[in-house]
């Protein structure tokens, strides 16, 4: 499903952010990517959506070499991959419903499809009664669930979550993690980047640890965040 092959990322002049990363993630896996701030987790995730490109090495998604995806085709790649961020990245002038509808509009979804799917996905994440709320009227947890709903609207095969609980309190964090686990159970491959020990340890799935651009540990079952 996802494969990194000797991936190196060097920011000029000589800041080696990813150092020979070899990593394979199978379809349907739930992977926690852990490591201190600055370890290179976000950079690794950005390789998958082509927001960043490796200095050397290769990245494959579903067998396709990302080098061979032309700029014009990047939007299609991004519709196959859902993304969730620490800072939510919601459109502040649009309601919850409009935020989801917007993601569908930009991929040329038919209006009937939008009217049917958008409320449905919002009630799945527990925002069925907040369709008309603007992001600032939502709690942190609700905002992140809205962001997850938006990420899932294209039914992506991969969901990337970069520190999704970074701005949330404990209860909301666990709600978001539960939602991610549920999405994973329904068949989506989930990669969760986090430096939150408690969250990672509570999940009990595969844990890949990074430090200064290198993978230092890969526990495939019931992994722990070891500092």
């Amino acid at each position: 499903m996802i494969r990194f092959q000797k991936v190196k990322k060097i920011y000029e002049p000589h800041n080696v952010v990813l150092d020979n990363i070899d990593l394979e993630i199978k379809p349907g896996e739930f992977v926690c990517l852990v490591g201190v701030s600055g370890a290179g987790k976000s950079t690794l995730l950005k390789m998958l959506t082509k927001e960043e490109r490796p200095t050397s090495g290769k990245v494959f998604i579903e067998g396709a070499d990302l080098d061979e995806i032309r700029d014009r085709e990047i939007p299609y790649l991004r519709r196959k991959i859902g993304t969730v961020y620490q800072d939510f990245k919601l459109l502040s002038r649009k309601t919850a419903y409009e935020n989801v509808a917007f993601a569908m509009e930009v991929s040329d979804a038919a209006p009937e499809e939008i009217e049917k799917d958008a409320p449905q996905i919002l009630s799945i994440v527990g925002l069925g009664d907040k369709l008309e709320s603007f992001p600032e009227q939502l709690s942190g947890g609700e905002k992140q669930r809205l962001a997850i709903a938006r990420a899932m609207i294209h039914r992506p095969s991969i969901l990337l979550a970069d520190e999704p609980t970074g701005n949330l309190d404990l209860v909301n964090s666990y709600d978001v993690v539960k939602l991610l686990l549920k999405i994973n159970e329904l068949g989506t491959t989930v990669v969760l980047a986090s430096h939150d020990t408690n969250i990672v340890n509570s999940i009990g799935k595969r844990v890949v640890s990074m430090d200064r651009g290198k993978i230092v540990r890969d526990q495939t079952h019931n992994g722990r965040y070891v500092i």
């Binding site: 959506t49 927001e51 014009r72 939007p75 299609y76 790649l77 991004r78 519709r79 993304t83 990245k89 919601l90 459109l91 917007f102 993601a103 509009e105 930009v106 991929s107 040329d108 938006r150 294209h154």
Partner: peptide
């Protein structure tokens, strides 16, 4: 800027 960035991240085509 923010809107454009989000549009790109949710897979908006260039024409959009």
């Amino acid at each position: 800027k923010q809107e454009i960035e989000i549009m790109r991240l949710v897979g908006a085509s260039n024409w959009h």
